[in-house]
Write a protein that binds this DNA or RNA. Structure first.
Lengths: 125, 125
DNA sequence: GTAAACTTTGACATCAGTGTCAAGGTCAAG
DNA sequence: CTTGACCTTGACACTGATGTCAAAGTTTAC
């Protein structure tokens, strides 16, 4: 499929799909005319990347996470140097902090909505 | 205390304390010479704000969360209009999505570190 | 075959969160 | 009283994620 359809399916603007590709986060084939051509799998992957972006991860961090998730690398564990592992551990702590903070904010907002009689807005559908 | 000490205690660069103040997220008194003067409470508050920033919340969102958390507003619940509540509910869903995503990334990283024999880097101290 | 709707790349603009620097005031130590 | 370390504000620069626009090729529909 072409980029606009892929954009619509992933929820990311076409502009961003090109950007992610340029950043090495996603891939696409090219039709004979030079148009990008996305497979379902590629769209699925793009959706994943988009979710990570929206979670607030930097493209740099996303690249690492993707690499870790890649099944082709499940056995390439040896490639995890001490240096990389330490960096990952540091990033991990950042992510964990972020989660804790977001949970607090979430709870504050939920609480507030409940108190103000807008509980109906929670868990919608 | 003066700004550099506050900066050191909150982990935010002095530059950022000024910025947060300018954005209306924190406050400080002024000594007679015009220097900012932070109380322990103000430092504590700044630390909180800093954590929210590091969690990836925008200053706009942080302002809202702070407002919600403020005890002085616990009874001002009536001020929560339907519009604001709906916006909050939307933001809430964004935050929840973000949490889910970050948790997945976290787990992937933890898993990876375990598999690569770097479990010792987890839960350090 | 022409117009409308797409695509391509590349450039420039914006926004928030930062870094950094300049010009000047303040203060403590010598 | 001068020097050095701190503070002030203001300006300008950068980065990453985006929007947007222009120029050019492509495809679709009439």
């Amino acid at each position: 499929m072409k980029i606009s359809e892929a954009a619509q399916k992933t929820g990311a603007p076409a502009r961003m799909l090109r950007y992610y590709e340029q950043q090495g986060l996603i891939e696409s084939s090219r039709s004979t005319n030079g148009y990008r051509d996305y497979s379902e799998d590629q769209v699925e992957h793009a959706r994943h990347v988009r979710a990570l972006v929206e979670a607030g991860l930097s493209t740099r961090m996303i690249k690492i996470v993707l690499d870790i998730e890649a099944p082709s690398n499940q056995d390439a564990a040896g490639a995890c140097t001490q240096i990389l592992a330490e960096e990952l551990a540091r990033e991990l702590r950042v992510v964990e902090n972020r989660i804790v903070c977001l949970e607090k904010s979430r709870d504050a907002v939920i609480d507030y909505l409940r108190r103000t009689g807008h509980a109906d807005l929670l868990t919608p559908a």
